[in-house]
Computed example of a mutant assay.
Amino acid sequence: MEDSHLNLQFLETDRIGIYFGNNSGGWNISERGFEELYKFGPTFVNPWQATAWFPAAAQGYISIANSIHGTSKSYVADKATGGVAMFSAINSIKRGDNDIVICGGTEAPLTLLSGICHYEAGELLDKNDEKEGILPFCSKSDGTILGEGSSVLILEEYEHALDRNAPIYAEIKNISTNFGDDSLELNMENCLVQSKLEYKDIDLLLPEANGIVKNDNVENQAISNLNLKYNHQPNLKFPKKYYGHLYGAQASTDVIAAILYLKNADKNSIKTRALINNRSKEGINVSIAIEKID
């Protein structure tokens, strides 16, 4: 909020919303509660446990701490959690529910019980040498790595940002979503059509590329089909290779990463537009088209 010059004293806080993704909740306090219950009985369990592990805890905390009263939502949708939150955040502005949305996500899944649950789901990278990180589009390595962290964007209409002299890093041209492995390619195309962009206009592509071979094969095929169809190959980048998968915080982190990639691109080649994919194992597809603003 400080970086975006968002001074709540001069804004209607009932027109500011909070849209957050959180997939794994407050596992740490939950695990402590289980231990307290087992060893000492129910009267020793922290009374805040029920709200601390609830996925809406992060959104609620931000709202209470800053006295923000606009339309707000929390989302849980596996690896598409952050993308679904951002999709809904932008639609809340388009509908006129909010003028500004604090949008992003947060995850802290690196606890004993949470780690076991993720491991039993069969999607974690099962190897001793984790230094290589997630290896996207690589059939020799199957599995993702959990990351911890949070990232937040301030979203608003362009004119509204100009009126309050806010620094503008990029424009989200469009976010589209659909369901099904065979619909990813269509969703990417629909996102661009609704953005009034063509595939050849995309300089940078950040795929989901979570290292799970089955999921990567679906996405790799969709990208290959578009490359062939439009005779264009955007530059591919895989930022989550370096910090793991952030689930609820992944989409907002990818947007930030894409902006930084575009900003620091070779000065001899102008790069301004990026397409980002965020998708769940169940096939919830979210595609985000952004354009850098200097």
Rank of each mutant, 00 (worst) to 15 (best):
G149Y: 12
A258G: 02
G211I: 01
G60L: 00
I29P: 02
G60C: 04
A50N: 07
N215E: 03
A89Y: 01
R164E: 05
V45F: 01
I202S: 01
F238Q: 01
T253S: 06
N91I: 08
N46K: 00
N268P: 13
I223E: 00
R273W: 02
F20Q: 06
V76M: 06
V84G: 11
V101E: 00
H5E: 05
L275S: 07
Q221F: 13
G33S: 01
A108C: 14
I256H: 05
L112A: 10
S72N: 03
R15V: 11
V218W: 02
T81Y: 08
S72G: 05
N174C: 06
K131H: 12
H245Y: 09
K214C: 07
A52C: 15
V213G: 08
Y261T: 05
L236E: 03
H5Q: 04
L11T: 08
E219K: 10
P207K: 09
F40D: 04
V218Q: 04
A209N: 02
E2D: 12
S224V: 15
A56I: 06
Y230R: 03
L162V: 09
H232L: 10
G248M: 02
Q250E: 10
N231P: 11
L275M: 08
F238C: 00
A249H: 00
V152G: 03
N235T: 15
W27P: 14
Y158T: 09
D129Y: 14
Y230C: 10
E123A: 06
K200L: 15
E282N: 13
N174R: 05
M1C: 03
G147Y: 03
D99R: 01
L197R: 12
A251L: 04
N128I: 15
Y242E: 13
G283K: 09
